[in-house]
Every structure is written in structure tokens, then in C-alpha cells.
């Protein structure tokens, strides 16, 4: 059953009289539990697609079904609720709150989900343990390595138990060994049933996915199933 269903989705930016189509009538269907890598050169529309998938942006035309709900025309307020309940974000530059402990960073989505403080602390600790950082809960981002910061970000993404995690170049700022660790972590999450979609321009990182989508000029030019790298290893 499809978790994501895009139909004739277009995103057109207008500057003065000139129109620029970042996405041109994209059709895409992603099932629950899939592990999808999106690649493409810069300007291919992959970031725009991620923003719309993440409900940070709304399409100009077309429809976007997340679950059984069309989220293409939702208000800012409703989009915020959808992001909070259904989506976890992982960014290239981690986007953690500085001078704020790992535990508090992970708690952040739960504050907006109106989870009471005691429950928040418990779930934050569980999420940090799941990414292997239970012992670093009291550390601030500046006291953590890049890989550890990205783990905190992943913990923050999964603390609300969302069905979908979106990662935008999750390994872009990391060395190859750390990148492999992060991809292994994302694979584990996918194997536990979460749908994981990530953007990358590196071939070896795209190899972790079970499905590889290539974009160019705002359209999908190839969409292939592949055997995920870690599935071979195990």
C-alpha cells in the first residue's frame, strides 16, 4: 500500500514575469517501508521534491497523498501538524539547536506534540539509546563529533515514531567511515518498518537504498529497484 502518492505534481517559482518550473508534473508512488535514494545534479528539482514531500512547501499544481490524505492544499497550520506527526527530518548540516543538550534537542518535536515533560524525557532517552548515544544525552552539539550530531538528529527524527523519515544529504558533511555508520543506522530504521527517503549525489551512498530515483530538470528520468547494499552483506 502506498504511503506517498504524487499525481501530476508541479512546483513553479515566479520571479517577475519569468516562470521557472522546479518540478514538472511528477508522478511518484512510494510504498510503506521502502528505502529510497533520490539523486540528480543541482537544479534537478530533488530539493524541491524533498521540501514538498516534507510538507515544508506546497505544490503549485497536482496532488500529494500522504497516507490517505491530500496534503497539497493544506494551510501552514495543518502542514505543521502533519510534519510533527508523520515526518522526521534529517539535514545535511544536522540543524541541532546550539547550546542545548542532545536530550533536549531530541525532545523538541515532543514539545510541539504536547507530550508531558516526564514522558518526553523518557522517550528522548529511548531514542538516544536507539542511535547509540544514551551516554551523551547531556552533551551539547559543540561537544559532539559530526557523526554523533547526525545521530542526535536521527534520534530527534524518530522520537515521534513517524512513518516517514526524510534525509537531505545526510552524509554530506561526514567522512566516509562516519557516512557508512549513518547509512547503517538509516537501514536499520527502514528494516524496522519506517519509510526512509534520502537525497544524495554520491553513488556509493545511493547504493544503500532499495530503490534509486534519478531526477533531471524537474522530472524523474529513471526509477530503478536494486538490491540494497546491506541486504547483500547480511
Amino acid at each position: 500500500m502506498a504511503l506517498i502518492e504524487l499525481r501530476k505534481l508541479a512546483r513553479i517559482y515566479q520571479t517577475g514575469d519569468t516562470e521557472f518550473a522546479a518540478l514538472r508534473d511528477v508522478d511518484l508512488s512510494i510504498d510503506r517501508g521502502e528505502f529510497v535514494a533520490i539523486s540528480g545534479s543541482s537544479g534537478s528539482g530533488k530539493s524541491t521534491l524533498m521540501n514538498i514531500l516534507g510538507c515544508l512547501d506546497s505544490p503549485t499544481r497536482g496532488s500529494y497523498f500522504l497516507g490517505d490524505r491530500d496534503v497539497a492544499k493544506l494551510s501552514r497550520i495543518e502542514l505543521a501538524r502533519v510534519r510533527n506527526e508523520f515526518i522526521g527530518f534529517v539535514f545535511q548540516n544536522f540543524n541541532l539547536l546550539s547550546r542545548t543538550t542532545a536530550a533536549e534537542n531530541v525532545e523538541l518535536p515532543l514539545i510541539y506534540a504536547k507530550v508531558p515533560p516526564a514522558e518526553r524525557r523518557k522517550r528522548s532517552r529511548e531514542a538516544l539509546e536507539r542511535v547509540g548515544l544514551g551516554h551523551r544525552a547531556g552533551h551539547t552539539p559543540s561537544q559532539l563529533s559530526g557523526g554523533q550530531q547526525q545521530r542526535v538528529a536521527i534520534a530527534r527524527a524518530l522520537v515521534t515514531k513517524p512513518p516517514l523519515i526524510l534525509a537531505d544529504e545526510p552524509t554530506g558533511n561526514l567522512d566516509s567511515a562516519t557516512s557508512a555508520e549513518i547509512m547503517r543506522l538509516l537501514s536499520e530504521l527502514q528494516q524496522s518498518g519506517i519509510t526512509v527517503i534520502y537525497v544524495t549525489h554520491e553513488l556509493d551512498i545511493a547504493a544503500y537504498a532499495g530503490r534509486k530515483i534519478l531526477m533531471k530538470d524537474g522530472a524523474i528520468i529513471s526509477d530503478q529497484r536494486q538490491t540494497p547494499m546491506l541486504a547483500e552483506a547480511s
Partner: peptide, 16 residues
């Protein structure tokens, strides 16, 4: 600004 962006991404309402 970035903090505001992060808060919005994880589900903060404009009113929040």
C-alpha cells in the same frame, strides 16, 4: 532564524 526554521520543521505552529 535557523532555530525558528528547526522548530517549524519539527512541527511548531506559527502561533507557537
Amino acid at each position: 532564524t535557523r532555530e525558528i526554521g528547526i522548530r517549524m520543521a519539527v512541527g511548531a505552529q506559527p502561533a507557537d
